[in-house]
Amino acid sequence: MAATEGLTRFSALDPMLPPPAPPALGDRIEVATADGARVAGGVQRHRHGPGDPPLLWSAAEVWQLFPDAGTAGTEGFDLLLGELRSRVDAEAPGSDSACVVNWPSRDAEAIRAFLDHGLAPLSALAVRTEGPPPAPAPGDAAIRVAGPADFDAVLALCTATFDYTGLVAHRRREQTAELLAPALRHALDEPLTWLAEAEGEPVALAQCAWVDSGEGAEAAELLPPGRWGYVNNLVTVAGHRGSGVGRALMARVHRELLGAGATATYLYYNPTNPLSSVFWHRQGYRPLWTSWEAHPATALR
Rank of each mutant, 00 (worst) to 15 (best):
E130N: 10
S291F: 11
L300R: 08
L275T: 15
P93T: 00
W289S: 05
P93A: 00
P19D: 14
Y266H: 07
D150T: 01
P191H: 06
D89P: 01
E75N: 01
L275M: 11
A181H: 00
V231Q: 02
V211G: 07
F162R: 06
G26N: 02
G36M: 06
L249N: 05
P19A: 07
A34R: 06
V203R: 01
A219D: 10
A126T: 13
A248R: 05
D163S: 13
D150H: 01
A90R: 15
L84E: 08
A108K: 12
H170I: 10
V237M: 08
T290F: 09
A40W: 03
R28S: 03
P133H: 03
L80T: 00
G259M: 03
A260N: 11
A149M: 07
E221T: 14
H295R: 15
V211E: 14
R128F: 04
N102L: 13
H48M: 01
L222I: 11
T129Q: 12
A264T: 03
P54W: 02
L122F: 11
N233M: 09
T193N: 10
P19H: 04
S213M: 07
R286M: 09
G70P: 10
H46W: 13
T71Q: 03
A12Y: 08
D89G: 08
C99T: 13
T298E: 05
S277P: 09
L84I: 11
R45C: 11
S276F: 00
V43P: 04
S95Q: 13
G242T: 01
A72M: 04
G6Y: 11
S276C: 03
R247A: 15
T272R: 13
H117E: 01
E130K: 12
G229I: 00
R47G: 02
R241S: 05
T74E: 15
V31W: 05
P133K: 00
F279S: 04
P20I: 05
T129W: 07
L115V: 14
M16W: 12
A2E: 13
A141G: 01
T129A: 09
T4G: 10
P15T: 08
G242H: 00
L55H: 07
G147V: 12
G244I: 03
L84Y: 11
R9C: 12
R112W: 09
V39W: 12
E215M: 09
G6M: 10
L192K: 03
L192Y: 12
V43N: 06
R144V: 12
A32K: 14
L192R: 14
L155E: 08
A264H: 04
D163V: 14
V101A: 02
H240D: 11
P23G: 05
G36R: 00
L188N: 03
L7T: 08
L184V: 14
S11H: 12
G36V: 02
E201L: 13
N232A: 14
E130A: 14
F279W: 06
A299E: 11
R241E: 05
P136K: 15
A294H: 05
A204C: 01
E5Y: 10
P50F: 04
A37Q: 14
T263G: 00
W228H: 08
I143D: 06
A204R: 02
S277L: 09
E201R: 15
L55K: 07
G36A: 07
L188E: 05
G200Y: 09
V145N: 07
T265I: 13
V235N: 11
R38F: 02
